[in-house]
């Protein structure tokens, strides 16, 4: 074992431990803000793992997009819905948690058996390409040209839609009053909610 491999193994161990610990923190912490910051930790350690996998460009993209955009967005959302909310305790919730944990451990056992049992046909010499950037760029403009272009439509629509849904828009009172509909129907479904319908009986609440 030469020095480079030793360093790789050690840094892999550290990054993996960091990532698992942070990911457990994300799902287990009570306070949502801690979870959000730990999520950043997960993303950063994954980016470190990408560097171990000879992927410099994707590691940078991971930091820029996940930490820089997604995580910040999540933090903003947490601040915008900033209410100390104490969830009403539900009895028997720990049973559900325990059952879920059991299922997840089972799933992990299944997946790891699969990983270890499958004979992956490894490429014999792993040589890092001299520049991943050029290879990725070539892919974007050859065999992945169509998904690349479609992603632009996807991002455009996600942007427009997110703005429409998150925007706090005022309801034009004059217009709504002049038309023949009552004010509260604006931005709503035309169907009445079920509680208001006269024929609503207990029969549609099964159990």
């Amino acid at each position: 074992m030469n020095l480079a491999e030793g360093v790789q193994i050690v840094s892999f161990g550290i990054l993996a431990a960091l990532m698992i610990a942070a990911a457990l923190g994300v799902v287990l912490f009570e306070k949502i803000v801690y979870s959000a910051f730990l999520l950043g930790g997960v993303f950063i350690s994954i980016s470190g793992l990408y560097i171990l996998l000879n992927a410099d460009f994707v590691a940078a993209a991971q930091i820029l997009i996940y930490v820089g955009a997604v995580n910040v967005l999540i933090l903003f959302a947490i601040m915008l819905v900033n209410k100390e909310e104490v969830f009403k305790p539900i009895s028997g919730r720990w049973i559900r948690k325990a059952a879920t944990a059991l299922v997840c451990v089972g799933l992990f056992a299944l997946l790891s058996t699969m990983v270890l049992a499958t004979p992956w046909n490894l490429a014999a010499p792993i040589t890092a390409p001299e520049s991943t950037l050029i290879l990725i760029g070539k892919h974007f403009f050859s065999d992945y040209l169509l998904p690349f272009e479609l992603a632009s439509v996807l991002l455009l629509m996600a942007m427009i839609g997110a703005i429409i849904i998150a925007r706090r828009d005022f309801i034009p009172d004059i217009e709504a009053a002049s038309s023949d509909q009552p004010l509260q129907t604006v931005w709503r479904l035309p169907e009445r909610p079920r509680e208001l319908t006269p024929t609503q009986g207990s029969s549609n609440q099964r159990k």
């Binding site: 000879n54 992927a55 460009f57 994707v58 993209a61 991971q62 997009i65 996940y66 955009a69 997604v70 967005l73 999540i74 903003f76 959302a77 490429a123 792993i126 040589t127 890092a128 390409p129 991943t132 290879l135 990725i136 892919h139 974007f140 992945y144 998904p147 992603a151 996807l154 991002l155 996600a158 942007m159 839609g161 997110a162 703005i163 849904i165 998150a166």
Partner: peptide, 26 residues
């Protein structure tokens, strides 16, 4: 390691995940 299609796939997944997160938070 020669064609690194997986890295390209990852870039797409990152893109879509960002869009999904934005829509979800909205």
């Amino acid at each position: 390691p020669d064609t690194i299609r997986g890295q390209v796939f990852t870039v797409f997944v990152i893109t879509v995940a960002a869009a999904e997160a934005a829509v979800g938070l909205a």
